[in-house]
């Protein structure tokens, strides 16, 4: 039995221990305070207080959509530049930018709200699978490996790099079509998907009046025959839309039509004209049946097929 053989008086132990503890702890505290004071003086960073205020006005999404590494960096850039030229927070939109402008005492021009648009409609139905891909589930790698399951070297690879890149849950892969879908209410046009897509299929386009917009859902630059061989709804570069457009908004470069959204007046003439249904209209009311057009269409040797149900062309609302 090893009991401690030294005996102190209880009170004496308490007094000694307590006094030493109090003294030593106080000494440490004072020393630390002095050191901290001098360090704080030495490394003091003088910052413009407006950076904090601007940062508070920003949405704190840190998505990088403005081109800066996070909201803080963007706030610093704004304060440093002293103007709002070329600086825009796509997430906050006009509301946030006008708040920022107020803080900075500047004017800001209204920017049209944008949305990410998928310029491919090579769904499993439109562009049938020719081979089966196995391997790392990333478009970036598959893009370097081969042309795609439908053999279209421009089309969506369907592995969802864009979905991963989206910080706002505004994208999901449609199981049936194998294409990503933009949820319009959630998309803030930060541009992450545009950067993530190795094939540059996404484009930021204006949301449009009443959310109505028209775009060419294809970026295939191949000639008509090979493009059409891989995908029923490819732009074949026929140029009909260019001719029909009353506003010169459509250009045809490298066998591919592109609608300039600055010039487009949403007249929808090109949509009707496109023989492969590659031009999509979104959120327009259904057309009134026009018998004379239908008659005209039936006279053609190979009439364009009736527009199919295209999940991509209808908008998905997040709220029910």
């Amino acid at each position: 039995m090893k009991q401690s053989s030294v005996h102190y008086k209880k009170e004496q132990i308490v007094n000694d221990v307590m006094i030493y503890a109090v003294i030593s702890l106080s000494a440490i505290g004072v020393a630390a305070a002095v050191i901290l004071f001098f360090v704080a003086q030495k490394f003091k960073v003088i910052e413009d207080p407006r950076i904090d205020t601007v940062q508070e006005a920003l949405p704190s999404a840190n998505c990088g959509g403005c081109g800066y590494a996070g909201c803080r960096a963007f706030a610093e850039a704004i304060v440093k530049a002293g103007s709002l030229e070329g600086l825009n927070c796509p997430v906050g939109g006009n509301a946030v930018m006008s708040d920022v402008a107020k803080i900075m005492g500047l004017e800001v021009e209204e920017k049209e709200p944008m949305i990410a648009v998928l310029r491919c409609n090579g769904s499993r139905e439109n562009a049938p699978q020719k081979v089966k891909y196995e391997g790392a589930a990333t478009c970036a790698f598959a893009h370097g490996l081969y042309s795609g399951e439908s053999a279209c070297p421009y089309g969506c690879l369907g592995l969802g790099d864009c979905v991963v890149s989206c910080d706002f849950d505004a994208l999901y892969m449609d199981e049936i079509t194998g294409l990503p879908v933009v949820i319009a209410d959630k998309c803030v046009a930060c541009g992450a998907c545009v950067k993530a897509c190795p094939r540059n299929i996404f484009e930021l386009r204006p949301k449009g009046k009443k959310d109505r917009r028209i775009h060419v859902a294809c970026i295939n630059k191949e000639k008509g025959a090979p493009a059409k061989k891989n995908c029923d709804v490819a732009c074949i570069g026929c140029g009909k839309c260019v001719k029909v457009c009353p506003f010169d908004a459509i250009t045809l470069v490298n066998n591919l039509a592109y609608i300039d959204f600055e010039k487009c007046k949403l007249c929808r003439k090109c949509v009707e004209e496109c023989p492969t249904n590659a031009i999509h209209e979104i959120n327009f009311p259904p057309r009134k049946p026009k018998p004379e057009i239908k008659a005209g269409a039936s006279e053609k040797p190979s009439p364009a097929p009736e527009p199919k149900e295209m999940p991509i062309a209808t908008e998905i609302k997040a709220n029910n």
Partner: peptide
């Protein structure tokens, strides 16, 4: 002309 190569690109 452009011909599909082994990886499917033209």
């Amino acid at each position: 002309d452009e011909v599909m190569d082994q990886s499917g690109y033209r």
